[in-house]
Design a protein around this nucleic acid. Sequence first.
DNA 1: TTGATAAATTGTACATGTACAATTATAATA
DNA 2: TATTATAATTGTACATGTACAATTTATCAA
Lengths: 236, 236
Amino acid sequence: MLKYQQTATEIEAYIEQHALQQGDKLPVLDQLIRQFEVSKTTMTKALELLERKGTIFQVRGSGIFVRKTNRKGYIELFSTQGFKQNLVEHDIQSKVLSFELIPCPEEIIENLGSTPEEMVYAIKRIRYINDNIMCLEESYYRQAIVPYLNREIVEQSIFEYLETALGLNIGFSDMYMHVGKLPDSIAQHLELKAGDPALTVETIFHLTNGRPFDYSVITYHYEHSQFVVQANGLYL
Amino acid sequence: MLKYQQTATEIEAYIEQHALQQGDKLPVLDQLIRQFEVSKTTMTKALELLERKGTIFQVRGSGIFVRKTNRKGYIELFSTQGFKQNLVEHDIQSKVLSFELIPCPEEIIENLGSTPEEMVYAIKRIRYINDNIMCLEESYYRQAIVPYLNREIVEQSIFEYLETALGLNIGFSDMYMHVGKLPDSIAQHLELKAGDPALTVETIFHLTNGRPFDYSVITYHYEHSQFVVQANGLYL
DNA sequence: TTGATAAATTGTACATGTACAATTATAATA
DNA sequence: TATTATAATTGTACATGTACAATTTATCAA
């Protein structure tokens, strides 16, 4: 683990231990540097990481303060950076509906930048959050990049397997979101009615080297999923 | 404008001028440093900015490459960083439904960290994108921070006014999203039917010093709004 | 008191330099 | 030719140091 990531984790622990709340002030930058025994660069990067993660905010001339979202029960859609301790407080389960190795379907080719001959793992599964149906996920993995998958892996966390067992470096992703009415085919899986509202998120995942390896379409159950996003930039 | 922001803008211009496409390689870091005559720190920060913005991706040992989303017609929900050139390619118009100065409503107090006595500007407006109804926006600005607003300003970009005329420094925001069925009252404004699907986004905007100044609830028209998010971290 | 002004505090921008890890290209070997 | 080992390329991590801008605190005048 990198030093600045490690430092960031330690600062989080510090916040936890001292039970700091929204708006509370952390020690001054110089003090943090001495306290955690790192250089200014490292501390700055650690703080920047925590700022993007939404844990703190920094005010020049004033100090470093804790930023906490108070609402509970929301899913972090884009951790935008950092670790993956998003959903740890939620209990996530999966039920595999289908799992097969097929030639890349026509409509997926463009998204994955693949060829019609190329084989892909096609997986359909329902994901549960705290024993409620959260979403239906249909995903396609290029076998050229993910040479092997099996049903057992797919029942657990696929990304976990890709990173640890296969040593793949997962990089960035493009997500496309829209809201619409559920078609009957999907509604059944979510135990909802056709015409009910749904959030659909298409995502193209890339390795750090830019190669797309996974295209997935997730349809969320509108009653069991709500999302929080901590943003830092500007907007509308 | 800061040097690294300026540099980032110049690199974007470079990409534009050379008509670089997805996956095309930029000059090597050292070359970029010489070419744009900045230090390594500055260039690194500029590139980091562009990476977060989704314009490029960097691969150690390999190079710096262009990253472009090819789908058109999507709204950038969270620019996650950077400038606010999101919606420039869209034509955004507003129609003000109501505009008043009132004591802070009960249900808003907690979100804005205000008191019941405090006065807030309450604004309701419909926003159009390319002449289609995009969303209904209800927003509340604390008068303690935004001392003056009028109907004319509200018909244009409020944030533009806050930044330039009032000199406020807009910082981070917390967004809460969920999907649901439209109540009749809102459906009418969006020219939809009660029960139709809708994406609702609540946002609490803060100044850079951490003080919340704006709480808004936006209900999007499901047929006229779709969103793209370029993420960099990890996920589900 | 109030209000302006100066000084101290504190985070950010930027430069320079070293070491290193991931990738790619090259050379050596079977 | 294919495979492996080596070297060159290229971005990232990290340290140190200077200058500065935004904020807060202290000081002084009215």
